[in-house]
Amino acid sequence: MMKNLSNNLKELRKNAAMTQADLAEAIGVSRKTINTIENRIFVPSTILALKLAIVLHCSVHEIFELESD
C-alpha cells in the first residue's frame, strides 16, 4: 500500500528562525534542495533527513510523516 510522504520542514525551519539559505548552508546543500523538499518535489535520503533533524533539533519523524488514508 503506497502512502504519500508529507513533511513539516517549513514550519520547523521557521520555528528555528532559519531561512532556506541558512538551513541549506548548515547541512551543505543548495537552497533549491531545501525548497524542493518543502514543496514535496524531492524526497531526501536518510542521511540528509538525519542531518535536517540534527540541525533543527528534532526527530526525523517530526519532519517527515506518512499521510494517513
Partner: peptide
C-alpha cells in the same frame, strides 16, 4: 562544487 552537485543535483 559539492554544494552545486548536492544530493538533489545528483538525483
Amino acid at each position: 562544487s559539492s554544494v552545486v552537485w548536492d544530493e538533489l543535483s545528483r538525483n
